[in-house]
Nucleic acid binder design. Structure first.
Lengths: 195, 195
DNA sequence: CAGCTGACAGATTTCAATATCTGTCAGCTG
DNA sequence: CAGCTGACAGATATTGAAATCTGTCAGCTG
């Protein structure tokens, strides 16, 4: 669409791919479309990404990483672990809910992409449970939580709150009492962690 | 397949429909197939079910009700509520896991059917959380659990354990550490309930 | 005459021909 | 000569005509 004289980089291709996915959706977005948007031939795209699948995987990773990055701040804070845990879970829920609510079509597009890239999703979940592990370990160290194995407990907390971050439940996130449901689960989980 | 002289009842039609669904899958199972299996014309099936959708809904309800029924025994027992809660959750997980593992194709068929009949699924969930509410209320009464609003807490417990009964997670149920994951979540939840 | 049949209209699905896309690579270009 | 192009073969998707299915109902049958 805006052919420039700038060098063709992986980054520029990823940007263009996101735009094409947003416009055409996951089923109709083709490598030819991406090349056209960049004003190059589709052969050039294959110089940077071996296959269409690799290109889509890279876009998916970028998108997932942006979500993780927005939460690292809470992990690093030097505050009461219980408050940090509550804030982290609420921030994750809020972020996901906003993405699903603000642009449902784009969200659906990324649901298709994550379905194609189970491995990237696995890495993302490892990343998120790693963040949770740090908070829970802090809580165990300060004595706020009673936990024998922080990584296992972090995974348990992540699974127990899945309803509020797993995209598969997105259709429930505009129920009127969803916040009350969230509070009830968080309360149950936090009580289960306390000393 | 086995044309009998017996009267055509809703029950016999449901039986035949299950069989046709098992044989042909949800996409190819037609009302004509069901009629053929019963040795009648398809017009006769429409005498008992107004539409194909109504027929499939009835089959779905029957299937869901069979699952709920298998758990009522645990609810009614006069034992330690915590043990009953653990047993109930384990029984639900075991039942679902067996269904998914024993006949994956049939399980996939019912996943399609439940997707078509969100309302019936809602009723099923209400049924299950109702059973949970009874156990949790017993726990509150005996002082084993500290709970202010049993129905709300029951829903929270149900949501927190979704990974182990929601069919959407069936693909994870044969992970080698799934039992450890289940134990970790149940432990967290039970600790959250205790006085 | 209660219950069933089967022909029918409109909706949906299937299938095969056609078009488009993916991934490669020999050669062009700046 | 590094990076890009565009023609190509095989794979995948689209399309529209034909086949099948859904739901109705007038009339048949036991």
């Amino acid at each position: 669409m805006t052919p420039t004289t700038e060098t063709l980089t992986a980054e520029r291709i990823l940007e263009a791919t996101e735009e094409v996915l947003r416009r055409h959706g996951p089923a109709k977005a083709t490598v030819v479309d991406v090349a056209r948007a960049l004003g190059v031939s589709h052969g050039s795209v294959y110089r940077h990404f071996r296959t269409k699948a690799a290109l889509r995987e890279a876009v998916t990773k970028r998108w997932l990483d942006r979500t993780s990055a927005s939460l690292t701040g809470i992990v690093a804070e030097a505050r009461d672990p219980e408050a940090r845990l509550r804030d982290w879970l609420a921030a994750l829920f809020t972020a996901k809910r906003r993405k699903a609510g603000d642009d449902p079509e784009l969200f659906a597009t990324y649901q298709v992409l994550t379905g194609e890239n189970v491995e990237a999703v696995g890495a993302h979940i490892t990343d998120l449970t790693g963040q949770l592990t740090r908070i829970i370990r802090d809580g165990a160290d300060t004595g706020a939580f009673t936990v024998t194995d922080p990584p296992t407990t972090a995974r348990a907390v992540f699974h127990a709150t899945a309803r509020f971050h797993d995209p598969g439940y997105a259709q429930d996130w505009d129920q009127p009492d969803i916040d009350a449901q969230f509070e009830a689960v968080v309360e149950l989980v936090v009580r289960g962690l306390r000393a």
